[in-house]
Amino acid sequence: MKSLKLDYLKSLKWADYLFFALVEPRRLSGKIADAASKPLGGGIAIALCAVFSDILAASLLAVNTRFFYYKITYGFLLLSIIAFVKVLVTAGLIDMLCQFMGYPGAVRTMIVLILYSLFPQMFLLPLAYVFKVISFAPPFFYVLFSIALFVWSALIVITGISETHSVPFSKASLMFIFPYAFITLTGFLASLLALASVFGYFASI
């Protein structure tokens, strides 16, 4: 079993997922869907690396204190957990909507797809680093690249949804936006409810 894993690593077949994530997202979702055992391990590793890259990029631009050690250890654990929860919730909501619209459920494919879609976000560190080295508006470029790489990740997921369920790109975009809109709306309504409860409590005493 151990040598089987080593052979798989040596064969570099795992790199295909990353390659397709960058240049051919349609083939990525097809490959994930076709795989007998979903490459979840690789996806988790990508997500962890993306979180690590983000922490390092942000730390490079900030004034570094001893707090960096907490950021890179406990902070890394916390952000990784948040990232995985985010991935699970997003994949769950997307799949729920797909099933609601009459498409077959593919939540495992969706989870792995979203994990691999985080691969471009690993480029945040070297990109921000270049502008830090030349001291040319590093915070601006950090934000710019963060947004650009998020859009890239979103495009990978949207293309994957489009391929998995054979729906047009526009419809896949709406499916992708749904979880974010749902969470935003739920959060807004929950905060309204909380505010109303607080005001109500103070009004009654």
Binding site: K13, D16, S53, L56, F68, F123
Partner: peptide
């Protein structure tokens, strides 16, 4: 196979940049 090797090179560069960043932050600290 060529694409796979390119990908591994990209990953190596990403790893290198991460090492440099950790090195620089450690020096600053």
């Amino acid at each position: 196979d060529k694409n796979r090797k390119i990908l591994v090179a990209i990953l190596a560069l990403l790893g290198l940049s991460a090492m440099l960043a950790v090195f620089e932050i450690s020096l600053t600290l």
